[in-house]
C-alpha cells in the first residue's frame, strides 16, 4: 500500500460517507427476525461467516475493479453470477449507485454503468481516488462487517462498545481476507472467489417480502 494516501482511504471507508449504507443491515435484520441472532455471540458468528463469504468476494471484486477499472462490466457480470438472490442483487446495486453518486462529487470518475454492484463500484472509485487494489479490498472487507455491526446496535440495542470490541477482534481477519483478495486481483473473473452464504440469500428473499422492515436489506 506504499505511496497511497491513508487519509483518502479513511475518507472512502468512513461509515459516514453518504453512500446509502446506513439503510442496509447486511442481512442481519432477517436473521434477527428469524431468532437466530439475539446476542453478541451470535452477531460475532454472523460477522465471521459473512466476512469469510461475501466479505471475501466483495474484497476480491473491489480489488479487481480497482486494478482494472475498465473491466467493470465483466466484473459486474461476475458478481451477478455470484448473487443468486434478486433481493441481494438489488441491494448491492442500490449501494453501488449511491457510492458512485457520492464519488462523483469527490473524485473525477470514469464513465461506468449507473447501478454497478457495490464492490465493483468501490473498486472503480478507489482507483479514481488514487488508491490501490489492496486498499480497495480492505475497504470492502471492512464494509461488509461494519455495516452489519452498526445494524446490530440499532436492532438489538447491544452495547456499542462491545460491538466495536468485536470489530476490533475481527480486524486481523479482515486484513488477511483483504490480502488474499488483493493477491487475486488479476485472476480471470470465473476464478475470483465465489464463497457463498446460503442463509444470506434465503434471508434476503424472505426479508424482501415483509410488509414492514426497518432496513432496505
Amino acid at each position: 500500500m506504499s505511496g497511497m494516501s491513508l487519509a483518502t482511504l479513511l475518507v472512502l471507508a468512513d461509515g459516514r460517507l453518504p453512500s446509502g449504507g446506513h439503510a442496509h443491515s447486511g442481512g442481519l435484520e432477517a436473521q434477527v427476525s428469524a431468532g437466530r441472532v439475539r446476542d453478541l455471540d451470535a452477531v460475532a458468528d454472523f460477522l465471521r461467516g459473512k466476512l469469510a463469504t461475501s466479505g471475501l468476494v466483495s474484497a476480491a471484486f473491489a480489488a479487481a475493479a480497482c486494478a482494472h477499472p475498465s473491466e467493470w462490466a465483466a466484473l459486474d457480470q461476475g458478481l451477478d453470477s455470484r448473487t443468486p438472490s434478486p433481493a441481494l442483487r438489488k441491494a448491492s446495486r442500490a449501494q453501488g449507485r449511491a457510492l458512485l453518486r457520492a464519488a462523483r462529487a469527490m473524485w473525477t470518475m470514469p464513465l461506468t454503468g449507473r447501478d454497478l454492484h457495490q464492490p465493483v463500484a468501490l473498486g472503480v472509485v478507489a482507483a479514481a481516488a488514487g488508491l490501490g487494489p489492496a486498499a480497495a479490498a480492505v475497504a470492502a472487507a471492512h464494509g461488509t462487517t461494519s455495516g452489519a455491526a452498526s445494524a446490530a446496535v440499532r436492532l438489538l440495542g447491544l452495547d456499542p462498545y462491545a460491538v466495536h470490541g468485536l470489530l476490533a477482534r475481527l480486524a486481523p481477519e479482515c486484513d488477511r481476507i483483504a490480502a488474499d483478495a488483493a493477491a487475486r486481483a488479476d485472476d480471470p473473473v470465473d476464478d475470483l472467489p465465489a464463497a457463498g452464504a446460503p442463509l444470506l440469500d434465503i434471508g434476503a428473499e424472505l426479508h424482501a417480502t415483509w410488509e414492514v422492515r426497518l432496513f432496505a436489506s
Binding site: R16, L17, P18, S19, G20, G21, H22, A23, A98, A216
Partner: peptide
C-alpha cells in the same frame, strides 16, 4: 440529512 442517497434514488 446525512446520507440522502436512498431518497435521491
Amino acid at each position: 440529512r446525512d446520507d440522502i442517497s436512498a431518497n435521491l434514488d
